[in-house]
Design a protein around this nucleic acid. Structure first.
Lengths: 194, 194
DNA sequence: CCATCTGCTTGACACTGTGTCAATTGACAC
DNA sequence: GTGTCAATTGACACAGTGTCAAGCAGATGG
């Protein structure tokens, strides 16, 4: 839990990520994680006080591993609002499949566990800020479609790009990732661009 | 569980619906339901073999109470595809808040329980058929926007109108029901109508 | 060489919620 | 009375999280 991770902590977090990514929605228990990390179940609690704390630490670990910040660079660098929107949709839509295992575990836990819910909401708030920036850039260019306020447009974009929607389209409706991405680009444009 | 309900079964189902509707997302245990129905927890199992079976029975009970079929009449009666789409969005968007408690319980359960997941998927399949009919009516009129196939348009509309999206906008982002409804009407039009 | 600290182990246990089982009761019917 | 039906009480199994105590192996240091 310290900001600098011990070797064992790294092993635990790596094991967690591997299990969440491969399990494809399967429940991952503390004992599964312990076994995968090669230690006893109780030893996990010596490093992370609860399942929720472990999941939160794992998201940070995931960000570190995936370089989540760097992904947003193209979006920030975009000149026009339209470009910024497209770059943001692309960045986020491409990130979702990589974090899906994690997200799924969080969303399941958040159903009962307020701490998990808060941690997830916080991350989604960050994501919303990206949406907001894209919408603002559109508005600045005078390219934001009429009918929705900036706040409403932000919320709509944020909802459109939700993990649940990705899950519905790619998992339940078997869309390919490419199709999903293209549809999100097109949808965002139709909803928000004048 | 028989097609005709005993008095106790009716009391159990009514209690279930009341708890799910008022609890606003709170976990509803078998013991809560039993207490609300004025019987012992074990007695509930004399009528419904499992929590999942009880939830499924409760959805049918809810349909009966809310007259879910009648709601779709305006959509079916619509002359143009545009009207049909608007009527369908209105009917479904208005239904969601009434079934939300139920839906939430199902979705939470579906995370672990395949039977619950299947029951929910089945109901969402019905909902998708409504979307499909609206899209087909649009296409028939030549009013379906280019860029998406009928199947894709159906999936997009279905996703747009998902319970999770309603939850995100009205619960997390505090949109009023009216605002939600208006935004869905407008969004469906922008996404699908030429 | 012994003491102690650290990181881990094993094993037991509490708690929650679902689902099962057995023995019992009270009422109503024939 | 006897049978039967709905419900009761109480106990228990099971899974998964989280806690606690006792012990052990290896490194550090006097």
């Amino acid at each position: 839990m310290s900001s600098t991770l011990s070797e064992t902590e790294t092993r635990i977090l790596d094991a967690t990520l591997v299990l969440l990514e491969n399990g494809d929605g399967e429940a991952v228990r503390m004992s599964d994680i312990a076994k995968a990390a090669g230690i006893s179940r109780q030893a996990v609690y010596l490093h992370f006080p609860s399942r929720t704390a472990l999941l939160i630490a794992a998201t940070h670990h995931l960000d570190r591993r995936k370089g989540s910040e760097a992904r947003l660079a193209p979006s920030r660098a975009a000149k026009s609002g339209r470009e910024r929107l497209a770059a943001y949709v692309e960045a986020w839509a491409t990130y979702i499949p990589e974090i899906y295992g994690m997200a799924k575990a969080f969303l399941a836990r958040a159903e009962k566990d307020t701490a998990a819910a808060e941690a997830w909401d916080e991350r989604m708030e960050d994501m919303r800020e990206g949406c907001e920036a894209a919408v603002r850039a559109l508005a600045r260019d005078g390219d934001l479609a009429d009918g929705f306020s900036e706040a409403e447009a932000t919320d709509l974009l944020w909802t459109l790009l939700s993990v649940r929607n990705w899950e519905l389209l790619t998992k339940t409706r078997s869309w390919s990732q490419e199709r999903y991405l293209a549809a999100m680009q097109e949808s965002a444009r139709r909803l928000l661009v004048r």
